[in-house]
Amino acid sequence: MSKDQPAPLPGQSDKIVQVENLSKKYGDNIAVNGISFTLNKGEVFAFLGPNGAGKTTTVEILECLRNPTGGQAKVLGYDVSKRSDQAEIRKRIGVLPQDFNAIDRLTVRENINYFGAMFKHQLDADKLIELVDLKDKRDEQFKKLSGGLKQRVGLAVSLVNDPDVVFLDEPTTGLDPRARRDVWGVVERLRSQGKTVFLTTHYMDEAEYLADIVSIIDHGQIIASGTPDQLIDTHGGKKTLIIRDAGQEGLKQLPQGLPKAELRNAGDIAISLNNGELTSILMSLGQTPLHDKEIEVRRPTLDDVFLNLTGRRVSEEGN
């Protein structure tokens, strides 16, 4: 920013979240270790990492639930460490805490109105119910809903004040695949409405599918940031050509001079591809008995990115 330009007033900048050298210690344990990132207006930002990496601590600092030990964090231009600014932040953010449950014996609608009443202005509960696709359940008590539907109530509750930024802390942890997809659907709708979303997750596919920008955090430090494509291109490694069900026999039938091939998953042959090699390899395979086998090219995923950066994979449970 040039010296002549006035600094934007809090709440007016396009930089929704600005974090610089942020750290948080619990005794001797360093949960967050000097991280920096920026979240711009309208972006879906994924904070990706295993359990205990520092995701929730960071997001809770941004939600003014915890005080940082060092560095600076601003949300909508307001400083999370200043008491007077915290009040302004709370008015303008939407939060879905990890493992959140609404009030058991209130209905979906009553829960939305309950949390809505904490704010000066609240969105119409019925519109939110429509957004999260819970029209049929609006008068059902929360405790009677399935896990996926409960999470959708949580999403509606996090949007009740029409926030400038929504923080979703592990919104799909513990949900079945279908319920996860439903939650993704809601986040996609938010993106199409131009909402800014800060998402934490340990699911690589979730970050890849939903996020415009991904920051990978491990042991309290950000180890890579960028769009999912950028991360994959930079850290994902090579594409792989897969020949389905070729078996040992197939290995012998491969033309000479191919890059190293290996047998995987009971019979699939995997060949690591360098850039520009695909066409020539396909042509040479056409000359062999393997030409009628099912062939696919597998692109690296964020899983591979994480593996290449840390030397380990994150389990389904996030460990």
Binding site: K91, L96, P97, F100, M118, F119, K120, N161
Partner: peptide, 13 residues
């Protein structure tokens, strides 16, 4: 435990 208090603490309440 249900994180209701945590949620409320992020609102102006």
């Amino acid at each position: 435990e249900l994180k209701i208090i945590k949620k409320l603490a992020t609102t102006p309440l």
